[in-house]
Amino acid sequence: MIQVGLLTESQKNELVGQLYDEDSYFNPIQDLDNNWIISIEEIEFCVNPEFQWVKTLPLIEYKPKPEPPLSEE
């Protein structure tokens, strides 16, 4: 089971466009239930002092949205 960090809408807005380490950006996405989430790697490897609060995010099971349809006709 893959776990991810659950974000509020406002927390998602805070993270968009922000670095979690020197050369890696947060990438909040929505899961199957339209929750905003970030990955466990973003949480674990976050060294940006401004966003250490991600380490206290509740963890939930990752339920991916269906991938875009395969590009096959």
Binding site: I2, D23, Y25, N27, P28, I29, I38, S39, I40, E41
Partner: peptide
């Protein structure tokens, strides 16, 4: 490159997490 989302970087390479890393 500009990395976004979850990656694990190590001496063996760059591993995207299959969730949101690219």
């Amino acid at each position: 490159l500009v990395f976004s989302g979850g990656w694990t970087h190590s001496s063996t390479g760059a591993l995207p997490n299959g969730v949101n890393g690219y």
